[in-house]
Amino acid sequence: MLKLPRKTLINFTVILSAVLFLSYSLIHLKNPVQKTFKPQLSLVSLLKREIGGLIFYHRNMVENERLRGAAEALRSRLFDSREIFLENNRLKSMLGFKQRSPLRLVPARIIARSPDSWSSSATIDKGKNNGIKRGMVLISPQGLVGRVAEASDNTSKILLVNDPSLGVSAIVQRSRQEGLVNGTLGSNLIMRYLPKDADIAVGDLVVTSGLSQIYPKGLLVGKVINVGSDLSGLNRYAVIKPAVNCSAIEEALVIIP
C-alpha cells in the first residue's frame, strides 16, 4: 500500500482547491476583465496596425497593387462567365426550338450591323456555302427576324423586320384580318391597308399570313399596341411591337425551304 506523507497530501489538497477555485472564479472574471481591457487592447492593436502599416508601407503597396490586379482579373472573368451563361441560355433555347420546329433551320450569328441609320440591316456569318440563298426567312424562338437580302459565299446581308423596305403579309391571329406589315426604322412596326371596319384591337397578336409564299404561315410578328386611322380616313393602321428586339438580337435561324 502506497503511503503518502501527511504534509504532501495537505499541500496537494490545498493546491487542487486553489486551482478549482481559480478556474471557477475565472469563468466569472473573464467577462468583466475582457470588458475593462477592451479599449486598451483595441488602442494597442490599432497602434500596432498603424505602425505596421507605416513600417511595411512598401510591401503593402505592392500587395495592394497585386490584389487589385487579381480583383480586376476576377471581375473580368466573372463578366465573361456571365456572358457565356447568357449565350448558353440563348443557344439552348434556340436548340430546343430547332429540335421542336418542323422547319429545316440553320443557326447563324449576327456579326455586323447596318453602318447607317437609314436601313435596319445586319450581316450574318452564314452564306451560300451553308445553303443560304437570297429571300430566305430568318426567325428566332421569339418570332420573325427578317429576310436574306443578299448571300455571298460565307456571309449574308439580312434585312431586319423593322427595315422600311421589308413588307410582310400578315394577319391578326384572333380575327384573321389581313394587312401589310412594314418596318419604320424605329422600335415599332406598322400594319397598313386595314379596312375602316377592320376587327383589330390593342393586344392582338399578328402572325404571318403565308399568302406571299416567302414567309411560312403562322410566324409571330408582334403585338398590336395602337390602332389609328390614316390621313385620308379610308384605311386604318396598327402600330405593332415586334416580337423580336431587332437592336439586341445576336443569333437567328435561317429557314431552308
Binding site: 437609314w118 423596305s165 419604320t184 397598313r192
Partner: peptide, 23 residues
C-alpha cells in the same frame, strides 16, 4: 442624310415623318 433619306422614300419605303426628321 437628306439625300439618303429621300432616296429611301423614293424607292417606295414608308418612313414616318418623325423618324425621318430624327434620323
Amino acid at each position: 442624310n437628306i439625300i439618303i433619306g429621300l432616296q429611301t422614300i423614293n424607292i417606295g419605303n414608308y418612313i414616318p415623318a418623325g423618324i425621318f426628321l430624327r434620323n
